[in-house]
């Protein structure tokens, strides 16, 4: 069980974290738009996350904080 915090306002919706997650847990939130006008990344099932931080390492804008 890990905790992911997204700085949603800084997300540019590039989707690199979506591909990086080995469990496929991250999706771009198509029902939300942040202040930059992008669909921000969000985690779908936090209980399944092991906190490997692959998404955070791939994020070009450093918006993901991972706690475990």
């Amino acid at each position: 069980m890990a905790k992911l915090t997204f700085k949603t306002d800084k997300c540019k919706g590039c989707g690199l974290c979506v591909d990086a997650c080995p469990k496929g847990l991250i999706k771009l939130a198509n029902d939300k738009i942040n202040q930059k006008g992008y669909h921000p990344a969000a985690i779908t099932d936090e209980s399944a996350c092991v906190g490997c931080a692959a998404c955070a390492m791939m994020c070009p804008d450093c918006i993901i904080k991972v706690e475990r």
């Binding site: 906190g51 931080a53 390492m57 904080k65 991972v66 706690e67 475990r68």
Partner: peptide
């Protein structure tokens, strides 16, 4: 909970 990954201070 321990922080595994966060923005580095130098950024």
């Amino acid at each position: 909970m321990a922080v595994v990954f966060d923005k580095p201070h130098a950024l």
